[in-house]
Design a protein around this nucleic acid. Structure first.
Length: 264
DNA sequence: TGATGAAGTAAACTTACCTCA
DNA sequence: GGTGAGGTAAGTTTACTTCAT
């Protein structure tokens, strides 16, 4: 049983402000973070540990080491995961997370004061992850481990990648949906504008000739069944018909309540 | 041509919630 | 029913890149 706490400690001769910081990540409640049990201790003056992964620098120096064992949620570690990570640590001789950080002591990319370095997945890694995502957008534990092993990543990194990938997919879909709705709104607005215009024209016609509507034979034809007239140029969604001599036009639009079409 | 700051991107993280044994 | 483990979504942080100035 290992505490659900990562602690990164840097001590050394460097004058950078972070050098003496103790950073602690204590998850309240449950966590699925496979990394939670990692304990990283870096001594910047040591030639063996110039590489240091500082977890959650924003937590600052106020976190005390004493709370390390008190507040953390203890969790039984997945045996296979532990084994796998232990293997990684042994083979790569480091105690840090990302492959980019899994480097030798002379890697100049590493922040000596211990701030988190950002992993960039290689093209090959991204391609494999993308292919895998196409097959299934979620992973079970075995798939996650297999993929991690295949890509020389930790299962947690694969898990995070899939989480972010799902989020990106959803965001993209939301944008598409938003665009469709926007287009729909624009169409309805145009439609409404056009209907209002037609209404005004009909009103003006009614005012000028209330008992006799004179319309061109080219634009009107008689509906045999109901003996109503309709515009030959109108489409099905904007049928406006009225009886000759009828005081009130009848509107047949795509709206349940025709009045909604008149709102501007 | 190099410095710089804003904006964008993506990895990693936190939190809340859910399901299941 | 309470509890812990394991999972996901949503939102945030942050290291890094890109690009205009």
């Amino acid at each position: 049983m290992i505490c659900n706490t990562r602690l990164s400690l840097s001590l050394g001769s460097s004058t950078t402000p972070h050098d003496a910081n103790i950073h602690q990540n204590t998850n309240k409640g449950k966590s699925t973070n496979d990394d939670d049990q990692e304990l990283t201790l870096c001594l910047s003056t040591s030639s063996e540990f110039t590489n240091c992964n500082m977890i959650n620098p924003q937590l600052g120096v106020n976190s005390s080491v004493s709370s390390f064992s008190n507040t953390s949620v203890k969790r039984e570690r997945d045996a296979s995961l532990e084994e796998e990570e232990a293997e990684n640590l042994e083979t790569k001789k480091v105690v840090i997370i990302s492959p980019k950080l899994l480097v030798d002591d002379n890697d100049e990319d590493v922040h000596e004061y211990g701030t988190r370095k950002k992993l960039r997945l290689t093209k090959e890694q991204s391609d494999v992850l993308e292919d895998s995502f196409k097959e299934h957008t979620t992973l079970n534990s075995k798939q996650k481990r297999d993929l991690a092993r295949r890509l020389s990543l930790r299962p947690r990194q694969v898990e995070v990648w899939f989480q972010n990938r799902r989020a990106r997919t959803k965001l993209k879909q939301t944008e598409v949906d938003c665009e469709i709705l926007r287009k729909c709104y624009e169409d309805l607005k145009d439609e409404n504008r056009r209907l209002n215009k037609e209404l005004q024209e009909l009103k003006s016609l009614k005012m000028s000739a209330p008992f006799r509507v004179q319309l061109s034979a080219a634009t009107l034809s008689m509906c045999a069944s109901c003996e109503r007239t309709y515009s030959a140029t109108g489409d099905n969604s904007t049928k406006i018909s009225f009886s000759i001599g009828d005081q009130k036009p009848h509107f047949y639009g795509s709206f349940t309540n025709p009045s909604t079409a008149l709102l501007s």
